[in-house]
């Protein structure tokens, strides 16, 4: 018989892995991805493939040559960052800008801090906000939704609902729900994103607190503003279904590494993201504020982590 293995207890494990968690999130993104392919066709395919491939390549290269650490791409977190970055980009974005975004997301957003688990900001959002500030024109000309579009960089462009609302246009809820609107490739179809969110909560990949508190805050806050002055702020449902709100609330704000860990911390974080988002949307110069709101609250997360959970026998 071989030598016995000795270790401290416990001796059995759940079999859960980081890779499985990341895979669950990827599965949850599939409906929204299919919607994106449906509306933006070739452009969506090109941007997503370039983004994922460059994120994975950059992580591999940085680990191999800069940090000289074992390869970590098998945990799928780079794939997820790549896909989320692509979801936050217009599908007609030139390929070289996508690659720059991936380099910033992985290089500055993630690996500069030591890789998965130690980055203070959501890498995909770091990439997106960098691009938004560096290439404002390219980042805010969105293609219009079109069935199985065969266009990439030469797609027809139009305004997003959030910008449209500011200009006084009115949108049909059905279009907003299924995503027949302009916008970043992954954010348009509310129903697909919600389906992904339900999957994540059902598989216990994420807790419901953050998404629910963000969406609830946005609904309540916009309802108040709408009641005060309907010309200042659109109705709550339009706000909930437009822009990056659902994508951000379900997939970006819930990033394990950069969100608070205790239920109370998560609630404060979610409410604050909701408030900041609405403030930027209604009073700010940008039509959309989700990414800024999440990044701002990412910075507050270490502070929120000082809140301790309810202990047994503390009373």
């Amino acid at each position: 018989m071989e030598k016995m293995i000795i270790s401290p207890s416990p001796h059995i494990f759940s079999g859960d892995t980081v890779q499985k968690r990341m895979r669950n999130v990827l599965i949850a993104l599939v409906p929204a991805y299919l919607a994106a392919l449906n509306y933006f066709g070739l452009g969506a395919l090109a941007v997503s493939l370039i983004s994922v491939a460059s994120c994975v390549t950059f992580e591999y290269l940085i680990n191999r040559f800069l940090l000289k650490r074992p390869c970590t791409i098998t945990d799928l977190s780079a794939v997820l960052t790549g896909l989320l970055l692509a979801f936050n980009l217009p599908s007609n974005l030139p390929w070289w800008i996508v690659i720059i975004g991936a380099l910033v997301a992985i290089g500055i957003g993630k690996m500069a801090y030591g890789g998965l688990g130690t980055n203070p900001f959501n890498p995909a959002l770091v990439g997106r906000v960098f691009l938004l500030i560096s290439f404002p024109a390219e980042m805010t000309t969105w293609p219009i939704a079109e069935k199985f579009s065969a266009h990439y960089m030469d797609a027809l462009t139009g305004a997003t609902p959030l910008a449209g609302i500011r200009a006084g246009e009115v949108y049909n809820y059905m279009d907003l729900l299924i995503g027949r609107i302009g916008g970043s490739m992954g954010e348009v179809s509310a129903i697909a994103l919600l389906a992904g969110g339900v999957f994540l909560i059902a598989t216990k990949t994420i807790r419901y607190i953050i998404p629910v508190s963000i969406l609830g805050t946005v609904a309540v806050f916009t309802a108040i503003l709408h009641a005060v002055d309907p010309t200042l702020c659109a109705d709550p449902l339009t706000h909930l279904l437009t822009g990056g709100l659902l994508l951000g609330a379900i997939f970006m704000a819930t990033d394990y590494v950069t969100s608070p860990m205790t239920p109370l911390g998560q609630l404060i974080y979610g409410v604050a993201i909701g408030l900041i988002t609405v403030l930027i949307r209604v009073f700010g110069i940008y039509p959309e504020g989700m990414s800024f709101a999440i990044l701002i609250m990412n910075a507050v997360t270490p502070l929120l982590n000082r809140l301790t959970p309810a202990r047994y026998g503390a009373k």
């Binding site: 968690r21 977190s77 998965l116 394990y256 590494v257 860990m261 301790t308 959970p309 202990r311 503390a314």
Partner: peptide, 17 residues
Amino acid sequence: PCIRCTSCMQACPMGLE
């Protein structure tokens, strides 16, 4: 590396971090 998923905190019967 720890990904701060909070599974351990949710599993702890004593409510510890």
